[in-house]
Design a protein around this nucleic acid. Sequence first.
DNA 1: ATCATATTATGACAATTATCATATCGTTTC
DNA 2: GAAACGATATGATAATTGTCATAATATGAT
Lengths: 228, 228
Amino acid sequence: MDPSCTCELCELKGLFFENLEGDQLDMICSGKVEKEFSQGESIIKEGTMIKDFVYLKSGLVKQFRSDSYGKEQIISISKPFDYVSLLSVFSNDQYNYSVSALEDSVTCNIKMEDIKSIASDNGNLALNLLKKMSKVADKIILDSLAIRTKHLRGRVAFLLIYFSQDVYFSSEFDLPLSRKEMAEYVGMTTENVIRSLSEFRRDGILKIYGKTIHIVNMDTLKSIAEFG
Amino acid sequence: MDPSCTCELCELKGLFFENLEGDQLDMICSGKVEKEFSQGESIIKEGTMIKDFVYLKSGLVKQFRSDSYGKEQIISISKPFDYVSLLSVFSNDQYNYSVSALEDSVTCNIKMEDIKSIASDNGNLALNLLKKMSKVADKIILDSLAIRTKHLRGRVAFLLIYFSQDVYFSSEFDLPLSRKEMAEYVGMTTENVIRSLSEFRRDGILKIYGKTIHIVNMDTLKSIAEFG
DNA sequence: ATCATATTATGACAATTATCATATCGTTTC
DNA sequence: GAAACGATATGATAATTGTCATAATATGAT
């Protein structure tokens, strides 16, 4: 094996390439390109040709698209170990969504041809991809159903809990989204996101310092996310 | 090859099993079970163990789940050539959704072990599955985003256009959903679905005879789906 | 520092949607 | 056929959400 290959040491190897050895790993390793993006930078643009299979090594990204009015809708937020160039990649030749960096991020890019050629030789890797993809797609669908049934306050609560429990593992964190982006994600207006946050602050559920959120009363917030 | 195998003649063979020959095709063929369901019958129940990979040979089905209030939400409607047991199948051990027949339907059921064992031997088949699955998941996500941005009348219009253009290929058809189910699909109340239909009738866009819908003015309906 | 600009914030009001009550129609059951 | 039931239908009203106006605060450029 190529001794200069660093993929063997990559903590994300197990994500897709568990069953990869020798020549196949060398192929991925020599063909891969790592790219860095600063906060706010565009990673993938809706409508461009798909050339690479992209996954996130570090940082946080949003996937989004424009609706028929030109307004942006956020489809999902992904952290490392989640896909980035997920769904369209195996069925389309161009991206259905855009992706951009919510925090400074690093991606690993592998040519689609390489992935496809290896997957067709290595069924276990293909099955692994299938498993991972279905999990990610499922989460997007279930989250979108969950959001749909909630009232506005519940949607904002849902989002705050997500950041606290799944992304930052703390009751205090900096929101990676503007109020406007939060609105684009949960399908409401910016004003109503702000109003919901203000109400939570007024009711002693949150402390808010600009983008910094401190969840004081998680239990109440959870019951709002569930029923309110 | 087993001469009694009928899979070779199945018009859906190309869907997933294009690249299947000899022993592998025999394995699928001898293990498969076809099942018939009458309109309204349950095909898959949320929460039960996944044993089979199921696809639809004929008919029409809905996939749905219950929200935290116990209310049903329809996730998607599938016709033949679309998946039935789509997403959860490769990542979960139990179903996240239920499936039931909107019309008399026939499914073909293949043991998950057989699919997995063949996919791990046959990367091209696995890639084919990946391609098909990502297409289906993508459609569900994009449809759900599209519905979310519309007002009530636009959602009902969207649904009617879907049935007319993608399922029945006619401007006159029998709705396979009750008004209540239509509401569960597009996220609104039954009363408002009925109201929207009544308005369309009043405005000369539709003729309605119970479950039979005749779209008289498709152009107007399309502009309502797009902007109204 | 100062200006211009975008984001956050709040209120008043309008539009949309849900809820509740009630009526009609069609189907099934006896 | 009559009774009972569920689906469809419509109106009145309440609740929710969006729109518009305006102000305060933060951010970035010069």
